[in-house]
Write a protein that binds this DNA or RNA. Structure first.
Lengths: 218, 218
DNA sequence: TCACGATGTATCGACTCGATACGTCGTGAC
DNA sequence: GTCACGACGTATCGAGTCGATACATCGTGA
């Protein structure tokens, strides 16, 4: 769900719509690509509910009418797209919004591992505590294996009625889901190992840097 | 696109809505699952445009008011769900519909290999001629590699700003798409081999059964 | 100078889903 | 027997989303 993604991004830094969309689509990569027709109504709704607020920074070229040169160091670095453009609408989390985000990120019900939500929840795992991460991953895994079972069963009942291309499509779809399950297995193992590592560190009092992956060199 | 899928299914046999949806979701397997809220309006639109027509067969338990026993051999076989229920609305292709379907199945433009259409087009490859099949597969492949390139590029520009979970999500997404490309490569090779086989058979005058896959035993 | 592309906000129509409503029919529990 | 439950069957509604589009500013380069 878009709203969670917006809140999650704004939790790191205030952003305006255009930049928000770019980061959103970078965040979710090849999975989804929210459009403005989705983004702007969502922002409006969030403002109306008091979860985010607008801060009209970067005033629209004040006083000096149509004169060309911009006043701030706009293209000075040449990298940051956050240069002084024109009346952009920058959104920021309110206290209510922060609270709501924490509630959502701490939840691990079915809503968290359904198709339309899982990737967003996963994208913000860095802001989610370890037990919730594992619960969501396991819920997702169960969900996928259930679907796998259902498809296999209904396919077995009607196998001979389908032409080869339909069969190939089904076979490919099943394979994709199976691969997803194996991916989840790897992630769950990693999370469990980390939890053990943290427990051990807690006993022995060592570093708390959980950033390295145990399968990185494989 | 749902409409193409409906026309394609009705091209094999007349069906009513409920059965149509079941076959639709079996056909597309784990990819999509059209709901009634999509199906019935689409049927209505197709009827309005004269591409399909309703045939009110299987009359609604005529005359014999509320008496229990059904008159036809309803559960006699126990397998066919097409037994004599109650006033079902059976849809059938019209001549216009058949023609439209042929036009659509023969087309191989960008619309055929975009995300939302490709799987439906693929599901009806058995009703599509070989050159169109290859063009669609190659178009799809090009589309995916373009997207791969775009995601890789934008990821390279912002790699260090992302946390490990976001990176893992991106990596997984890229891997899925890469696998899709390799799948397409295999299909394209198979199609090309078949085309050669057909050409050879045409010269030597042998069988025209194109059903076996050349990678089945791999 | 002026066309073009990037930046930026915003809306509209079309499509789709999930939930829901309503109704028939067969089956099995009690 | 009867009654609840699940399969079958048609249909609509609200909400979320996309793609196209509109409009405006600004920088760049032909």
């Amino acid at each position: 769900m878009l709203e969670t993604a917006i809140l999650g991004l704004l939790n790191s830094a205030p952003l305006h719509g255009y930049e928000l969309r770019k980061r959103l689509n970078l965040l979710l990569g090849s999975f989804r690509a929210f459009s403005y027709g989705t983004l702007y109504p969502a922002l409006k709704s969030l403002v109306a509910r008091g979860l985010i607020e607008t801060t009209e920074r970067e005033a629209p070229a004040p006083a000096g009418r149509a004169s060309g040169s911009r006043q701030s160091g706009a293209k000075a670095n040449g990298k940051a797209p956050l240069s002084g453009r024109r009346g952009r609408i920058v959104y920021r989390l309110t206290a209510d919004g922060k609270e709501h985000l924490q509630t959502v990120l701490a939840s691990s019900g079915p809503a968290a591992w359904e198709d339309e939500n899982f990737d967003v929840r996963f994208a913000f795992f860095a802001q989610t505590d370890a037990e919730t991460r594992i619960r969501i991953l396991e819920g997702r895994r169960t969900r996928l294996t259930e679907r796998l079972e259902a498809v296999r069963e209904s396919a077995a009942r009607t196998r001979e009625r389908l032409d080869e291309y339909t069969l190939e499509l089904q076979r490919h779809g099943l394979e994709q889901v199976e691969r997803e399950v194996r991916w989840l297995d790897g992630l769950i193992t990693t999370e469990r190992d980390r939890a053990l590592g943290r427990a051990r560190d807690h006993n022995a009092g060592a570093s708390d840097a959980p950033a390295q992956r145990n399968k990185e060199r494989g």
